[in-house]
Amino acid sequence: MKHLLILISAIVLFSACSKKQYFEPEDTLSFNKNSKSISSDISSFNRDGATLENGQFISSKGVSNIKLSEGFTFLNLNEGKVISTNIKDKILVDSKEIVTNTAVVAATLKDDILALVNSDNSIMAYDLRDGKILFKEYLSKSLANDNRIAAPYFMSNLILFPTLDGKIIVVSAQNYKILRNIIVDADSQFNNIIYLNVVNDTLIAASSKKIISVGDGVLHIKEYDLRDIISHGTDIYLATIDGQIIKTDISLNVMDRKKYKFAKIYALAFGDSLYALESQGYMINISEDFKTEKIYDFSFDEEDKVIAFGDTMYINDEYIKLK
Rank of each mutant, 00 (worst) to 15 (best):
L7F: 13
S9L: 14
I11G: 02
A16P: 02
K20H: 11
Q21V: 08
Y22L: 11
N32E: 13
I38H: 00
S39Q: 11
D41M: 08
I42Q: 07
S43D: 09
N54V: 05
Q56E: 13
Q56H: 08
S60P: 00
S60L: 08
S60G: 05
V63D: 03
V63S: 04
N65M: 10
K67T: 14
K67F: 11
L68C: 06
E79C: 01
K81D: 03
K90R: 15
V93E: 05
S95R: 14
N101T: 11
N101D: 10
K110T: 06
D111R: 05
I113T: 11
L114R: 07
A115G: 08
Y126S: 04
Y126K: 07
I133V: 14
K136R: 15
Y138L: 13
S142A: 15
D146L: 06
A151S: 15
P152C: 02
S156N: 15
F161Q: 03
I168T: 09
I169F: 10
V170Y: 10
N175E: 11
K177Q: 15
V184K: 12
S188N: 14
L196D: 05
L196V: 10
V199C: 00
L203N: 05
A205K: 07
A206L: 06
I211D: 05
V218Y: 08
E223T: 15
L226N: 09
R227P: 06
I229E: 03
A239C: 09
T240G: 08
T240Q: 05
I245H: 03
I245R: 04
K247L: 08
D249K: 07
D249Q: 03
R257M: 13
Y260K: 10
K261V: 09
I265P: 12
Y266D: 07
S273G: 09
S273L: 04
L274M: 02
Q280H: 07
Q280W: 02
M283K: 02
I284Q: 08
I284S: 02
I284W: 00
S287N: 06
E288S: 15
K294H: 11
Y296H: 04
F298W: 05
S299H: 12
K305R: 12
V306W: 01
A308V: 06
A308G: 05
F309P: 00
M313E: 04
E318I: 00
K323N: 15
